[in-house]
Amino acid sequence: MSATPAAAAEPGRATAWWQNRWVRFAARRLLRLLVSLWVLVTAAFFMVHLVPGDPVRAALGPLAAADVVAARRHALGLDDRLLVQYWHFLRDLCTGQLGDSIGTQLPVGQIIGQRLPATAELALLAFAVAMAIAIPLGAAIAALTRHGRARRTELAFAGSSVVLGAVPDFVLGVLLVFVFAVQLHWLPVAGRDAPSSYVLPVLALAIGPAAILSRIVRVEMLAVLDTDYLRTARAKRLSGLRIHLVHALPNAVTATLTLSGLLLGSLVAGTVLVENVFAWPGLGSSIVGSITNKDFPLVQGTVLVYGIGVLLINTVVDVALAVLDPRSTIGVD
């Protein structure tokens, strides 16, 4: 009579493979990824067609000769019926072709290939730094200020994290440049070469999310510290360090992970602004130029890359959550 729930949790026993919760979870998640991908690709396609007027005319300017515009229209396939164009767009995408930049005539894939590493590096480093600050900080503050202890510490933390969380990354970037590059001459103002040139852009991106995330970690940690199983851990008279690090932190962080995925997504978007502050040679500094110059193939390609990046991050976070906390993610069907 006491063994009933265990049977249900045994994967693959006496049940067909498609009833396995992991398989169903993977299928569901994959379907969502595909739908999102389709929405993204379709949006990127229609983005150009939603622009009022003739995109080629807009790109080449009012002075371009009519036959040049017509020829370019034809070359880009803009004379075909919309559905045909959509079909061609999808087909080209599947073979990895993103067209040529109107401005430089270079293949969009090549331009993006050159710039993507710088952006990805920036976003991932910033994410790592944000997590490395937020998790220990939030957990420590929670442990120190529980039950109204250390009121001042709590107030100082709450105040500074609210303010830092509200400062937009590009304003923070400008501030950091002013303090550490202009005033103190410790770090370079802009560019991407020596390791020291990474410090300011990464911090500009990481500090805001770190502030927000550390507040979440604190709240989660406080909730975990009040659970029955933490009392059990105390009843075992484990050391304080073990109680906090082994018993409390993993449970607090699982809940934080969902949000950190969102944060990483917005970090990717934040690189656009921060790259422009620091003249960082990534996708963000090129997309602004291509929007102003109406270089639509390049804009399309860049938007797709950003979008796919975000979708992949969301998927990875979901999978990580499922692995870390299988019961609440995939246990309930």
Partner: peptide, 19 residues
Amino acid sequence: TVVAFPGLLLVLFFAVVFG
């Protein structure tokens, strides 16, 4: 589906459309 994308990316997307 759209909510899953960060706001700034959507802003850039619409900035292309609206000029």
